[in-house]
């Protein structure tokens, strides 16, 4: 019983660091970079991805013995697309301004490689409950990087967090300036490169040859 529990816990914890979808498995990078200018869209995006990964993993895992292998990709895409449409409609109904900011990137969750990657690598060969946990874990690992990245970019780029100014007015009078470069796309890439650098200097078994 305890062994089972430990195994399930691992499914949740591993994707946060050792098997992080973004920095280790290189999955789902497109959206991670584009939606992290501010924290609010990043958090909404992270939650949406977590919901979609968890439930698509669950659904595919339930049907894993009946899905013919030859057409599995189309079936996976349809399940994912269905879930994404649901999420997209919910976002449009409740947080319209954020959904406008995310623009095409909600739709792009469909082709977010985290989904296809986890469906192929995990849900096709594991039981529903484990797959659900794996989906939550990977969604959380993705969200962790998204939140770290967006915190850095919003703080340094516009001096605010979640839309509230946090850098005191006095700093600006002393000559402090917001770094406009942090808001632009290239710095997202460089920041994530630095995050990978930091993670790998602490976690040396991830270093590539």
């Amino acid at each position: 019983m305890i062994l089972m529990y430990m195994k399930n816990l691992k499914l949740l914890i591993n994707p946060l660091n050792n098997e992080n979808p973004i920095t280790v498995q290189v999955l789902g990078i497109c959206s991670a970079l584009a939606v992290t200018v501010q924290m609010k869209p990043a958090i909404v995006m992270a939650l949406s991805v977590m919901v979609v990964t968890a439930f698509s993993n669950l659904i595919i895992s339930l049907g894993r013995n009946t899905i013919p292998p030859r057409i599995r990709i189309i079936i996976q895409l349809v399940v994912v697309a269905f879930l994404v449409i649901v999420v997209d409609q919910i976002l449009k109904a409740f947080v319209y301004d954020v959904s406008k900011k995310l623009s095409v990137f909600v739709g792009l969750i469909i082709t977010n490689c985290i989904l296809m990657g986890r469906l192929e690598a995990f849900a096709m060969g594991n039981k529903p409950w484990e797959s659900f946990l794996d989906g939550i874990g990977n969604g959380a690992g993705y969200g962790l990087i998204l939140i770290a990245l967006s915190t850095l970019r919003e703080l340094l780029g516009s001096g605010s967090l979640l839309g509230h100014k946090v850098i005191p007015e006095g700093f600006y009078q002393l000559g402090y300036k917001d770094n406009g470069l942090m808001i632009l796309p290239p710095m997202a890439l460089i920041t994530i490169g630095v995050i990978i650098w930091i993670q790998r200097s602490y976690n040396r078994k991830l270093i590539e040859e």
Binding site: T23, V26, L184, P185, P186, M187, A188, L189, I190, I192, G193, V194, I196, W197, I198, Q199, R200, S201, R204, I207, E208, E209
Partner: peptide
Amino acid sequence: VPAPLRGLGLAFILTGLLAIAFM
């Protein structure tokens, strides 16, 4: 290259620099 930066980390930073050039 510094070991922790090898591979993926460097690829990201390179892409960032290329993106600045393309801007």
